[in-house]
Amino acid sequence: MNEEQYEEIQVGLHLPAFEAPPLSRQALAIYCGASGDHNPIHVDIDFAKSAGLEDVIAHGMLVMAYAGRMLTNWMPQSAIRNFDIRFLNMTEIGEAICSNGVVREKFIEANQKFLIVEVLAKGQDGLNKLSGSATLSFP
């Protein structure tokens, strides 16, 4: 990213939001296989019920992967130095997750240009699923 492009990014800038399709059981099954995360709480309703839930819940890491897509849709992945989130609420079948980002800080350190982006993902009911931040840097 050149000087001019960096200058154009203002604190407060909203990244293009990323809206994922409503989560199906099939999507969780595919993610289960593709991610190697076979925790039964995400695919086995009997197990989920025995753990006191009404149904299976989505992998938090799938929701984080969607937030990652918002970042890499905006900037090349090689710019991401840190990506740090907390999971706030469980994500259920049928929920459509929207990931949002806002530039919160800009600074230059050791000739590297940095951006700190606040990251927030919500379900369609407005409940927060995860929040955190990403640090991006550019030579």
């Binding site: 991401i80 840190n82 989130i85």
Partner: peptide, 12 residues
Amino acid sequence: GNVLHAGQSFTY
């Protein structure tokens, strides 16, 4: 069954 993922961070 009592475990939830509370947070995740990556430093690259």
